[in-house]
Design a protein around this nucleic acid. Sequence first.
DNA 1: TTCTTTGTTCCGGA
DNA 2: GTCCGGAACAAAGA
Length: 288
Amino acid sequence: MPELPEVEVVKKSLEKSIKNLIIKKIQINTKKLRYFVDKNKINRTVGRKIISIKRRSKYLIIEVEKNLSILAHLGMTGKFLLLNKKKKLKRTSFYYQLSNKGSKHNHVIFNFNNNTKLIYNDVRKFGFIKVIQSNKLNQSTHLKTLGPEPLSKNFNTTYFKKFILNKKKCLKDLLMDQKFVSGLGNIYVNEVLFKSELRPNKIIQKISTKEIEKIIKFIREILKKSIKLGGSSIKDFKDGEGRDGNFQQLFSVYGREGEKCLNNKCQSIIKKTVISNRSTFFCKSCQK
DNA sequence: TTCTTTGTTCCGGA
DNA sequence: GTCCGGAACAAAGA
């Protein structure tokens, strides 16, 4: 699943490959992704140069000349793929190989002035691509309610304490709340709570300052490590190979129901439960 | 056929 | 008004 680290890797990849290129043509092969695909609006970017690539939470923002931005979200299975002039996959900005079977899910294809192409491919069609005026991005429904970036200085102990005042949620729901901190998804929240040795269903009013510090520390640590690995695995990417193996190895609890806890000397088995309709994995011995 | 999976938005109830 | 939890959304594999 594309979570914050994956989107960050995509951003860095696109910064190297499509910045300063001019959009020559856009092929749109679907009427609807997560939302209606507005061909007219998207086509307004044709003829304009790409001036910056940004990430906010899990959103990717491709800014073009004259106050337009392409806002994209990868949803569950969205990915950007880059084709060079010989139509060979030059570098994927995400971890799936583009198979022949997968090409029917190439929904939007950007053609650039140097004959390279950027393909938006999405099997589940749960992602989206929109074009918005750059100076109105922050007021868009998608971005306006987002909390601080988890890797920014604004996300700190003081902020954490202030936000949870008079709130009743459990810890997992808090970390999943994009208004609290933006960009953490189910997988990383499971991982952070395991490392922090805290129960997902712990009531947030019962969390100590030390525990808050631990949570923030592990959020930063896990995200940074994942960004680093994502980057290296794209560099080492070879045709016909996904990066599934490497990617999965990162997880300490997610998807490990029934398996032994990975902490030293712990003999417990990882449990699975459901919180707010999301799979939740934890060790009942290590997480208090 | 039904269940599961993902993140965001929307909506009803408290 | 505000907070919170759950449903809906697309699509496919088990």
